[in-house]
């Protein structure tokens, strides 16, 4: 990895032009994420946490500034290239609506793998990752609507990990869960981090943030 940080933001701004006036969601943000880090992003609502995370995940491109992923600048990339980066190097876990309703748990986990390899016989790997998340085998064939919130998040983590990404991005992964279930999910993420996975996680909950080893505070689009 020749010493390059996994992720480097250089003076990144994001402006949403709205009829009522421009909204500055991120304001000259510079930061780095090293391999193996576990970072919590905290800050008030509307401060730009999700915007930051989406930018880290190549879902969005900055209005100004540069983002380097493993030393590679992403702003000039085509939509297809960015999509391929997301598919192969980044795992996303959202607060809600993480799973495709028409696919069963195991099919949801398979989905990114099939997108990557173009093959349908990815079942074995999907089952393996799901078992790592301690999901009961009996639930593998259940549709998302037939799973509890905690179970859905386990499937979502499995789905995010199936392509063995460099970076795991979680936007309030426990936001919809009760404390106990949330802690169980955090245990899983902590384990993944101990085994080497880099994680950046947005949260409002100091208890959840405590699992991380570094906290970035965002206020009004700036790193505080």
């Amino acid at each position: 990895m020749n010493g390059e940080p996994l992720l480097r933001f250089v003076d990144v701004s994001k402006v949403y032009p709205l009829p009522a006036g421009d909204v500055v969601a991120l304001d000259h943000v510079s930061l780095t994420v090293e391999h193996g880090e576990f970072i919590a992003v905290m800050g008030p609502s509307g401060s730009g946490k999700s915007t930051l995370l989406n930018m880290m995940g190549c879902l969005d491109v900055p209005t100004r500034g540069k983002i380097y992923l493993s030393g590679q600048e992403i702003s000039g990339m085509s939509d297809d290239d960015l999509t391929r980066l997301r598919r192969d190097h980044i795992g996303f876990i959202f607060q809600q609506f993480n799973l495709i309703p028409l696919l069963s748990a195991v099919e949801n986990v398979e989905f990114p793998l099939v997108l990557k390899t173009g093959r349908t016989e990815s079942r074995q790997r999907a089952v393996e990752v799901l078992r790592m998340m301690h999901l009961d085998d009996a639930l593998f064939s259940h549709k998302p609507g037939e799973l509890s919130g905690g179970e859905q998040q386990r499937v979502a983590i499995a789905r995010a990990l199936v392509n063995d990404p460099d970076l795991l991005l979680c936007d309030e992964p426990t936001g919809n869960l009760d404390t106990k279930t949330g802690m169980a999910i955090m245990e899983i993420l902590a384990t993944e981090n101990r085994e080497g996975k880099t994680i950046v996680m947005v949260t409002h909950d100091p208890g959840v943030a405590a699992y991380a080893r570094r906290t970035i505070r965002i206020v009004d689009g700036r790193v505080a």
């Binding site: 995940g57 939509d79 999509t83 391929r84 996303f92 799973l99 989905f111 997108l115 789905r159």
Partner: peptide, 10 residues
């Protein structure tokens, strides 16, 4: 949106 985020191309 979900499919696109996790790697489905246009």
């Amino acid at each position: 949106g979900l499919m696109r985020s996790i790697g489905a191309r246009k």
